[in-house]
Design a protein around this nucleic acid. Structure first.
Lengths: 212, 212, 212, 212
DNA sequence: GATGAATGAGATTTCATTCAT
DNA sequence: TATGAATGAAATCTCATTCAT
């Protein structure tokens, strides 16, 4: 029974932390996380002795969610490429995961050092590796690159910044993403969404969005 | 003519700050910057009343350096594409600039709000716009994108992280960069540097470099 | 039930702050207050997020003490005038209160803006208003002034400076106070304490006291 | 010639300091004073090695101005009482002087310790002493008080606060002043300006003015 | 002499983390 | 076990004062 309470606390903390990390950055005060989770700081520290452990736990949870999303996508979509595109364009977990696992030195160390998320991390990598190879096998992705190249590149794009709430900024980011995806294709040249963006649009959009 | 001293100090501060921002992040303590510049905090604050002003000054300096590098590259290289590639692969100023001008909300506001860097920023944008259009005119860059698309994408890649000192991480980043460049070409398919990177390499390299 | 500790700390802080405000002025360092209260600065800031909140709390406490003193005085004394005189000449809380509530712009804003002290403040004003009217009704205070005039004047006198530890300065201030009180009477001319003070005494007393 | 420059600088500094002290308080930054005076801080410090000396000089100047005002008033007015009232109700120098000479421990020490203002201070005291005695001789001021009592009381009132820009606050202060003056008279009971102020008016006026 | 640049001590405030209840 | 109070180190920023030019 107490176990149930503890488990619930843990989950609330992880989910609150995920939200705070996304909206307020990785360095949000521990107390804010505790408050958002509806527990005292003491409880938070009891579960996660320091910030890294919390980050690792959040990442682990993200890995697991992402694995599930991948599983579902593979059942639904008819090509490896379609699975990749869907995950890349739609998954919030992917975004979070990439941030935590690759973005800051702090979180990188936390995630890669932790045993907590190790299993999920490795499984995820294996699945992604498989997916990229499948896409190459079906002729969607150019064959002169490794699966690591693809993931590496995609994580750069996805991790670049937090989700932008401005439509112009959004469009820019989306077009960048499609450009990258197109660049990965075995036969590039697919049409991009929206209209070409000029340099002038950068500043205008930027002025309104706080991001290029 | 104490002005000479003051000017020298100012320059030292800006250059120290550029270095610290690159290695320790935008939120490096002001005192550390002062120490690195060999001045007291008071001096730093006298020149730059708050962090944003310092950021803006560093960005302005970066813009000017980058403009100069572009000018030189255009005199040396024979195609717009070659100029772009050279700047993108070699310029430290570009990296710094992208970080400051696009990466964090804090620095974005600082740079875009400041009058200090306004002129250089606009000139830089104009030059880059011209360069991308030239590359399109000469048939190097695909014609269905705007100059803003190109810059937007490149800034995502370049701004993604601080320069990596690890060779494996370096290679990964470099391959990502080449992939993106190749994706921008009117006729993609150019060879990439190094060997394909597998998913496994990510963790290994990462483990040794502190970054993917 | 750590609340007991917290409450005790809170009280200690308020009482230490009251003392420091009186002796060292409203701009005494927060750290000094914390030290005097026997707590860390952090604790002080946890209870009172900024200086104004602390000031407001101290004022609120002062209001309450003063109300109690008034209550007791009204039970003991036989005339409204006697109550007024007693409070004015004897109450440390009145002195503190006047300082905080009327003296500096900072503390004025703090006290009048705070909800913390609102209730006590209003009750206090009502009681004082009543007291002045009673004194007028019994023929002690001249009838051509309002209760606000009386309080206004008295606060100028009381708030003029922190309690003086020098006997000569004390006497001067006391005589000033009696002069003012006498001026408020319906039939002035009551004898003043001590001997007349000459201009020469001002400097001598001042020289020894640090205040006129 | 240089002497002329220096003298001009000195005067500008004193006058700028008087203004800043009045509007921004005694602890206004030295640099702000220097700027207002149109000189560098260095110059300010050359003339006045520390803040006290500046305060003393400002006070000395105030003493001299006040003496002159008194001289003029004595030539114009027909009674000592009228001279007193005029000076008290109209002189800005008196206000400034009282602030510096009596209000804060810092300025008190500065003024009374300085040899700079000694002469003017003593002369001023002598004149005021004379004035009060004259007023007693002519039957205007009650005879059971010394000249020191009168000055002491008046300085409390005048020094109480910086000039208020709000009409209601002004009225309150003015009525207080008249009450005090009336209390000093040999035969009190003179009419006061304006209407009686109630306790309620205190808060209302206060709310609008930032002062009671 | 005048200037204003440089210094650094000190004040405010925030948070990660520990610990009493 | 959960809580949230307490702590104190660290970061930001301001000014009085000195000193090179």
């Amino acid at each position: 029974m107490l176990r149930a309470d503890a488990r619930r606390n843990r989950d609330q903390i992880i989910s609150a932390a995920a939200g705070m990390f996304a909206t307020a950055g990785l360095d949000v005060p521990m107390e804010a996380i505790a408050r958002a989770a509806g527990v005292g700081v003491g409880t938070l520290y009891r579960r996660f002795p320091d910030r890294s452990e919390l980050v690792a736990a959040v990442a682990g949870q993200g890995f697991r969610t992402l694995l599930e999303e991948l599983r579902v996508a593979r059942e639904t979509e008819t090509s490896a490429w379609a699975v990749l595109v869907r995950i890349i364009t739609e998954s919030e977990s992917l975004r979070l995961t990439v941030h935590l696992a690759f973005l800051s030195p702090l979180s990188w160390t936390a995630v890669h050092g932790a045993t907590l998320s190790r299993g999920a991390h490795e499984e995820l990598m294996a699945v992604l590796d498989h997916l990229v190879r499948d896409a190459q096998a079906e002729g969607s992705i150019r064959s002169d690159i490794g699966s690591g190249d693809a993931l590496s590149l995609l994580s750069l794009i996805l991790g670049a910044r937090p989700p932008d709430s401005d439509p112009v900024g959004q469009l820019r980011t989306q077009r960048s993403l499609w450009l990258v995806l197109d660049g990965l294709r075995a036969t590039p040249g697919s049409p991009l969404p929206g209209e070409p963006v000029s340099v002038g649009d950068l500043s205008i959009g930027a002025a309104r969005t706080g991001a290029p």
